[in-house]
Simulated scan of single mutants.
Amino acid sequence: MKVSRTCPACGYTADYSSAPLANARHPRHSCVKHRRGLDQARRRTERLLARVTRECTHPKARHAHGTRAAYVKDRCRCTKCSAANTAAGRIVTRERMYGRWQPYIDADPVRQHIAALRAAGIGVERIAALAGLSVSHTRELAEPGRGKSRGTRRVRPSTATRVLSIGINETSRAPHSRVDATGTRRRLQALIAIGWPAKLLANLLGRRPNSLQRSMTGQSVTARTAHDIATLYERLWNSRPPRMTGKQRAAADAAQAHAAAQGWPTPLAWDDIDTDPTPPALTASPVRQHEMDEIAIERAVAGDSISYDDLTAVEQQEVVRRLTAHGSSIREIAARLGTTKRTVSRRRASFGAA
C-alpha cells in the first residue's frame, strides 16, 4: 500500500511504499529544487504557447502561416504549419524513392557568373545585396578553397537563380562605384546641342552647374550619376527646351551655339550612344536663326505643342507656308501656332500669299 506525502511549504508530492520510508525520505526533498523545476516548466509552457501565435520576424522575408518556412524559420507549431511541414517531408520521401530528389545543383555556373560580375566592377557586397544573400555566403561562393576549406561545391536552385539573374550592366553597380563617363558626357552634350542649357539640366538633376561640368569633363562618374543622367536623357532627347520667354529663348540659342562651336552631335547622330565611335566633328553654325529643324516644322504643322515662338525665323516662315498650302485660314494658323492673326498675315505676305 502506497503512502503519499505533500510538502506544505512548496507543494512537492511523492508516493512511498510504506509510512516509515515516507517519514525518512520525504523530509529530505529540496523545496528550492522543486520550485526551480516548476518555474522551468512554466517557462517551457509559455514558449510553446508563444510559438503558436508568433508572427514572422524574419528580417528579409515575410513567412505566412500554413507553410513549412514558418514552421522552420519562425518555429510556429500551429496546426497549419505542422501539416505543411509534414506534407513537405512526404514529398521529399517520395522524390527520393523515385530518384528525383535534387535539392542542390552544381555551384560552378554560379561561381563563374560571380567572377564575371566582379570583373565588370560589381563587388561581392553589391552582389550579395542584389541576390538577397549574406556577404559571407557570397564570398564563399566567389572565393572557394581559402585556407583548409574545400569551398562550396553545390547550391540550392533558388540561390543559383538569384545570382544568375544579376545582369552585367551599369544598373547592377553600387551607387558610389566609378564607371566610364563617355556615355554620360555624350548624353549631356547631345541635350545641350538641341538647346537644353547646362544650368537647366543641372536644376533638373538637383545638382550645381559646376558639379555637372565635372561630369562632362572627367574620365569617370559614379554609377548613380550615370543612371540619373541616362534617365533624364531618355525623357528629354526628343523634346525641345522651354522657349516661352525671351530669356529662355536666349538661353536655348546660346546652348545650341556653344554645342555647334564645340562640334557636339545631337541625339539623332547616335545609334548606341555608349559604344558608338565618336563621329567627325560637326561644322559650326553660329547663326541659329538661319537653321531649319524639319522635325520642329512637322510637329508645328501637326499641332504637336509647338508654338510660334518656339521656331526660328525660317521655321516660322516654312510652317506658315505649309499650312497655307494645306488650305488653312489665317485664323486657323494663328490658333494652331499660338500667335496673332496680324503676325500670320505678315508672314503670308512675305511669300506673296493673300
Results as ranks from 00 to 15, higher is better:
R5Y: 00
R5A: 00
T6E: 09
C7T: 01
P8Y: 01
A9R: 05
C10T: 10
C10P: 02
G11Q: 01
Y12R: 12
T13Y: 07
A14Y: 08
A14H: 09
Y16D: 01
S17V: 15
S17F: 12
S17Y: 12
S17H: 12
A19E: 07
P20G: 06
P20N: 04
P20M: 03
L21G: 11
L21T: 10
A22I: 00
A22D: 00
R25E: 07
H26Q: 03
P27D: 02
H29K: 06
H29L: 03
H29D: 05
S30D: 04
S30Q: 01
C31A: 12
V32D: 13
K33D: 09
H34V: 00
R35E: 10
R35F: 05
R36P: 00
R36S: 02
R36L: 06
G37V: 05
G37N: 15
L38R: 14
D39H: 07
D39Y: 06
D39G: 01
D39K: 08
A41F: 04
A41D: 05
R42H: 15
R42N: 14
R42E: 14
R44S: 14
R44K: 11
R44T: 10
T45G: 12
E46Q: 10
E46T: 04
R47E: 13
R47T: 02
L48Y: 14
L48T: 14
L49M: 13
L49H: 10
V52A: 14
V52M: 08
T53P: 06
T53M: 15
T53H: 15
R54E: 11
R54T: 14
R54I: 11
E55D: 13
